[in-house]
């Protein structure tokens, strides 16, 4: 029998804990950034096909992962209040992200606005996750958020063009790849938590 707090946490965050999805999104983010980073103009059809292949492969794997979770652990439909909250959060986050991206590519600023928005978004996610249950296992969220915010401010702190040192052409690629790495780590931790807590141990008959 699981701790009742843990049960509430799993039932509330069941979809968010299905971390392999985040792993795929993280890998896709890194792969697309590496592709964009290695682009040489004029862009060849071969290069476009490589990107298309990568995206289609990742979407196929995403679908397979979705089926895996559904068949292994079943379905949980969140409450209408949580659904509304998540939709509103996604819309606000999406709009802020697009504005930050536009400002980042339009103006030369001594920090990465998209990085700051993503870092703050992770803090919001942390608060959302821990609304009901506080657990040390989720500390990687604020740590990741602080890391992304810190890296976004590096040019302002006297390290302009730090991304060139690691062979990346633009700050936006570097920040996106960092987000990709965070998604992979967070996804693996979430998945392990879910699979260990909902282990298919069934009582003896």
């Amino acid at each position: 029998m699981k701790n009742l707090k843990e049960i509430r946490f799993i039932a509330t965050n069941f979809y968010n804990l299905q971390g392999l999805r985040m792993v795929i999104i993280g890998i896709l983010l890194i792969v697309v950034c590496l592709w964009a980073n290695g682009l040489k103009y004029p862009i060849s059809i071969k290069s476009d096909l490589i990107l298309l292949f990568e995206v289609v492969t990742m979407l196929t794997v995403y679908y397979a992962v979705d089926r895996y979770y559904l068949r292994t652990f079943g379905r949980v439909k969140p409450t209408p209040e949580i659904q509304r909250f998540e939709i509103n959060l996604s819309i606000i986050g999406g709009i802020l992200g697009l504005i930050a991206f536009w400002l980042d590519v339009t103006y030369k600023m001594p920090f990465s606005l998209i990085g700051l928005v993503c870092g703050i978004g992770l803090f919001v996610d942390y608060v959302r996750f821990t609304w009901m249950v506080k657990g040390r296992r989720l500390l990687y969220y604020p740590i990741g958020a602080a890391l992304i915010i810190g890296v976004s401010l590096l040019p302002l702190l006297g390290l302009p063009g730090w991304w060139h040192v690691v062979g990346i052409k633009g700050q936006i690629f570097a920040i996106s790849m960092l987000l990709g790495v965070f998604s992979i780590v967070a996804g693996i931790v979430g998945h392990l938590f879910l699979t260990r807590t909902l282990s298919p141990k069934v009582e003896e008959k």
Binding site: M1, L4, I7, R8, I10, V76, K77, T79, Q83, L198
Partner: peptide
């Protein structure tokens, strides 16, 4: 009863849950 308490606690935190999820959650046959 512990199993029913766990089931109701889970169901009170979501809209609906299916049989497979509840079976994994409680470890019951």
């Amino acid at each position: 009863e512990p199993a029913r308490l766990a089931i109701l606690t889970a169901l009170a935190s979501c809209d609906t849950a299916d049989y497979l999820f509840l079976q994994h959650l409680t470890g019951l046959t």
